[in-house]
């Protein structure tokens, strides 16, 4: 490949202190088939325009920082190779369904609150007593929730989800999958109180198993599957309340 090949990135720009409207700015970047979109953005920031603003860290698809819309699709930019777009321009925007802070950075406070809402931790009385050694958990029991524990909180699924787009209080795919992860963990005893939160919003039932969340998930967590299972568990829980006093079940 000749040294002078370039590829064009069209970056979404918005600065809250100076811009009333977002705009796009084009940059020509040296084309390298080993580069990912994130490398190209970093090159722009380093050598052309230091004001371009984005989040990143690990560059290996596990820290979850660098999710953006790449040609309209939610992607980890550290896993989106330029060669898959070349020679055409690449349009990069902040993740949709989130307020924009600046340029490619979105406000994720609401997402963080939703993670906390589903009580994503082991609930049982002896959780801090280590004297009896590890809790036993068979490989089969581990397999019950392992997939749902793989979420890196990259939020791509919130950008893909049609319900998140119009229902602010919807806990959303990642948070519900995380709640489900603890509900399915054999060490946990908090399913009842967790389901109460997960099923409390009408919006949960608005999830129509479109499954876009699972399609875009870079870690194959399958939040859509988790939500359907949680609904089924919720229905059982609901039934139990009629036949047992509250809190006696599970």
């Amino acid at each position: 490949m000749p040294d002078n090949e370039t590829i064009t990135l069209e970056l979404f720009r918005y600065h809250p202190e100076t811009d009333s409207e977002p705009r796009f700015q084009s940059y020509d970047v040296p084309y390298d088939e080993d580069w990912v979109v994130l490398d190209a953005i970093n090159w722009i920031k380093d050598y052309v325009d230091g004001s371009v603003t984005h989040r990143w860290s690990c560059r290996m698809g596990v820290c979850g920082s660098c999710g953006m819309m790449v040609n309209g699709e939610p992607k980890l930019t550290c896993a989106a190779f330029l060669k898959n777009y070349y020679p055409f321009p690449i349009k990069v925007e902040p993740l949709v369904n989130f307020p924009v802070e600046r340029d490619l950075v979105v406000d994720m406070e609401g997402f963080m609150d939703k993670l906390q809402d589903v009580k994503p931790y082991i609930i049982r009385d002896d959780v801090n007593d280590t004297s009896g050694g590890e809790y036993r958990q068979s490989p089969a029991e581990l397999a019950q929730y392992k997939q749902y524990s793989m979420c890196i909180n990259c939020m791509l699924c919130y950008s893909a989800c049609p319900v998140v787009g119009h229902e602010d209080e919807f806990l959303g795919p990642a948070a519900l999958a995380l709640g489900h992860r603890y509900n399915k963990d054999s060490r946990d005893q908090g399913q009842s109180e967790r389901l109460e939160v997960m099923l409390s919003s009408e919006a949960m039932w608005g999830c129509t198993f479109v499954g876009e969340c699972s399609v875009v998930c870079p870690k194959h967590v399958d939040p859509a599957g988790a939500i359907q299972q949680a609904k089924a568990m919720g229905a059982q829980e609901y039934f139990k309340r009629f036949v047992m006093p509250k809190g006696a079940g599970v």
Binding site: Y121, I122, D126, V127, N128, D129, T130, G133, E134, Y135, R136, Q137, S138, P139, E141, L142, Y145, K146, S149, Y182, D185, R187, D188
Partner: peptide, 22 residues
Amino acid sequence: PREMIQLEHWGCPWSRKPDGTV
């Protein structure tokens, strides 16, 4: 060992042997 067991109690999904020990 105590710290690792504590983290196990806090939910870390350690890989397991067939008998359920880590």
